[in-house]
Design a protein around this nucleic acid. Structure first.
Length: 466
RNA sequence: GGCGGCGUAGCCAAGUGGUAAGGCAGAGCUCUGCAAAAGCUCGACCACCAGUUCAAAUCUGGUCGCCGCCUCCA
């Protein structure tokens, strides 16, 4: 068995076969840095985090590239509204984005190229397209002539002939021969203010799609393994990327395309008018545990819509608690006489089932089902006190390996509170020792009022945040 | 008009031909000074209808409901 992915390009599950055995080149469409990213964005970024961790879990060496779109209509408008240069404006949101990634424990990609730093590469790519006859110019802008790429529409499963102009088209200030054509290079207009580049194509700025083609090729090669993004990028963004990339190189582009579904909030598509639009920061302000948010985002298959709800966060927090409790238990359990082959058997079965589910297009929800079955069985074994030192190690090792995917076990340290709580816990232990139970109970209440829980174990009291 | 997805217990969610994983919530029991944690026990005729089949949540057709895409929104 090995990793299989549902490839949007072929709409079927395919065995993952990288260009270079043992290595995986990954291009993940990144944020447009004009605002704090919202929870829907993070659904996709956490999915991509799972993807890279799953590849690593399965032994691949991953090279992930995630772009920053730091020049487009929204960033230009935003910077003007803020009275800042584009650079200053976008730098703030890039910084915030990294902070948010840390909050959600998303592993860093190898490269985060910014569009503004790759205009040269884009111009070069457009030049290649022009040489091959795929472009035309009008009023200083350069467009991709769609009719020169017969494969157009394959990814989105759209037939260009049947594509309907959906009213939204065409309040565009640029002139195109065909509404479906898209801009590779946009001539400067007064609204762009100081944002422009003087290039052999003239004074202007790159179109949106070209940046991903140029930067993916630069860092991953003209052909690479996996390209991902949210479903909304499937069309037109990714479709256009394919068109311009294939036409520029004359060869194939990304082999596998993965798209994560939308996240709904309380059953509705997020929108500011519905009042259900949340940035990660909004949710943290409401007191949500970032690890519970991460777990929630991980626990629904990436191709299914995820309904984000506050009730769901609570359920996730409890599930994480269960894993952490087992983790703590493994750490403090004394070695027993040995379980026969039970530990080995349970764990091997879990490894097989878990990995198989993960291999099947990242079915983490299914994998977690197997994991929790194992958790229950392990707890029962620990209740009986039988696992010996080697077995405890084996259990711990597997839990750690799973956590290399989930990354939920580690608890944030809070030293000041912890010192205080530790003191109360010690006092309570002393009270118990002298059988002063009313005092012990009072101390428990005090500890709980600070947001912590204390529990007595055969190895002494342990405590953790509520 | 074209293309596509979804509907499984109170909530979340696997399973895609052989008599329904798992998590959360709830109830009881064991354990516990009390708790907590843990373990055990308790819950579904898989939207509806009709077919195919020895056998369907899983395949086919239809109905109802919800959702997405068809130019710049992850």
């Amino acid at each position: 068995m090995a990793l299989r992915f549902f490839n949007s390009l072929t709409r079927s599950k395919e065995l993952f076969q990288p260009l270079v055995p043992g290595q995986a080149g990954l291009y993940t469409c990144g944020p447009t840095v004009y605002n704090y990213a919202h929870i829907g964005n993070f659904r996709t970024f956490v999915f991509e985090d799972l993807l890279r961790r799953a590849l690593t879990f399965r032994g691949y060496r991953v090279t992930q590239v995630m772009n920053f779109t730091d020049v487009d209509d929204k960033t230009i408008r935003g910077s003007q509204a803020a009275g800042e240069s584009l650079e200053v404006f976008t730098a703030r949101y890039k910084q915030a984005f990294f902070e948010d990634l840390d909050t959600l424990r998303v592993q860093r990609a190898e490269v985060y190229p910014a569009a503004t730093e790759h205009v040269g590469e884009m111009v070069e790519l457009i030049r290649r397209l022009r040489e091959r006859g795929h472009t035309y110019e009008d009023a200083g802008s350069v467009y991709f002539r769609l009719s020169t790429f017969p494969g157009y529409g394959r990814l989105a499963n759209l037939n260009p002939e049947q594509m309907r102009s959906s009213g939204r088209v065409d309040n565009d200030e640029y002139e195109k021969e065909d509404v479906r054509d898209f801009a590779l290079w946009k001539a400067w207009i007064p609204e762009d203010g100081p944002v422009f580049w003087e290039t052999e194509l003239g004074k202007g700025r790159p179109g949106w799609h070209i940046e991903c083609s140029a930067m993916s090729m630069k860092y991953l090669g003209e052909q690479f393994d996996i390209h991902t993004g949210g479903v909304d990028n499937r069309f037109p963004h990714h479709e256009n990327e394919i068109a311009q990339s294939c036409c520029a190189t004359g060869g194939p582009f990304a082999g596998t395309w993965l798209h994560s579904e939308f996240l709904l909030v309380e059953g509705k598509k997020m929108s500011k008018s519905l009042g259900n639009f949340y940035t990660l920061r909004d949710l943290l302000e409401k007191g949500l545990d970032p690890v519970a948010i991460r777990y929630t985002l991980l626990s629904v298959h990436y191709r299914a819509q995820l309904n984000f709800s506050f009730e769901g966060i609570e359920a996730s927090a409890q599930a994480v608690r269960r894993l952490r409790d087992l983790n703590g238990r493994l750490g403090r359990s004394p070695a027993g006489p040995g379980s026969g082959d039970k530990v080995w058997q349970l764990t091997a079965a879990c490894e097989t089932d878990f990995t198989e589910a993960l291999d099947d297009d990242l079915n983490l929800a299914g994998a977690l089902g197997h994991l929790f079955t194992w958790v229950r069985e392990v707890n029962a074994l620990l209740d009986s006190g039988s696992p010996d030192a080697g077995e405890l190690e084996r259990l711990q090792a597997w839990l750690n390996r799973v956590d290399s995917l989930l990354d939920v076990l580690r608890e944030e340290q809070d030293e000041s509170a912890e010192g205080r709580v530790a003191e109360l816990v010690a006092q309570r232990a002393a009270a118990k020792q002298s059988r002063d139970f009313p005092a012990a109970d009072r101390l428990r209440l005090e500890i709980e009022s600070l947001g912590w829980v204390v529990k007595d174990t055969p190895q002494g009291p342990v405590f953790h945040r509520r």
